[in-house]
Amino acid sequence: MLYRRLYQFFMIYFLGLASLMAIKYGLQLSDYVIPGPPEIASTGLRVSGRYLLNVLNTLAVAILGHILAIVLATGIGIIGRLTAWIGSFIRVAAYNIQAYPIVAVAPIIFILLGDGLSSRLLIAAMICYFPLLLSFVGIFSEPVPEIEHFFESTRRMTWRLQIKIRAFENIHKLITVVVGSATLAMVGTIVAEFIAANAGIGYSIRIALYQSDLAKILVALFLIGICTSLYLVLLEWIGYRIRRRWAIPEGGLK
C-alpha cells in the first residue's frame, strides 16, 4: 500500500515536472519563469531539510484539525439523525457555510484568533469538516432496517446502538470519507498558513512566491506530496485494522 502510494505520487510529480520542462525548453523560457533541473536540484538540497520540518509542522496541525473535524462531524452527525428536520437543517447550513471561500473567512478568523496555532487549526478543521459532516449526517440518518428492526421491535434500541449499526454498515464509506478529507485538512492548513500564519510550509510557499522562486515551490510540493501520501497510507492502514478487528475477528473465522 505504502510503496504503491509513493510510486504513484512519484509518477504524478515527475510527469508534472517533465511537462513543465517540456514547456520551458519548448518555449525557451528563462529560469525565472520555470527553473531548470540544476536549479531545482540545488534548491532541493539547500532547502529540503528546512522545508521538511515545515511540512511536518503543517502535517501535525492538519492531523489535529482533521481529528477535531471528525469529532465535531460525529457529534453533529449524531444530533442530525434525531429528526429529519434537524438533519436537513444541518445539511443546508453545511452546504451554505461550505460555499463561503475560506480565503474570505480566514482574515476574520485571524483577526479574532491571531496568527498562531489556533487559527491554522480552525481553518484546517473547517475545510475538511463540511464534507465529513455531510457524509456523517447522511450515514447516521440512514436507517439499516434489516438490522435495526430486531432491536426496535424488541425495544433494545438505544442511540448508541443505532449509531454503531449505521457506522458499522457504512464503515467503508466512513473510512473513504475520512481518508479523503485528510487531503482537505492538509490543503486547509496550507491555505491558512499561506494567508496569514507564521509557520508551516504554506508560509514558506508564500515567501517563495514573494521571491518568484518556483524551484522552492516545486521542492515544497514534492515534500507535501510525500508527507500527505504517508498520512493517507497511515489512515488507510488504520481503516484496514478497524475493519479487520471490528468486522472479522483475528483467527476467529470459521
Binding site: E146, H149, W246, A247
Partner: peptide, 23 residues
C-alpha cells in the same frame, strides 16, 4: 407481537453466539 422477515441481518461486529447470548 413481533414481526420478522427473511432479509433481516444480525450486526456484523459480533459472532452469532455472542449476539444470541446478549439478546
Amino acid at each position: 407481537i413481533l414481526y420478522t422477515y427473511n432479509l433481516e441481518r444480525l450486526p456484523g461486529w459480533s459472532s452469532v453466539g455472542e449476539h444470541l447470548q446478549l439478546n
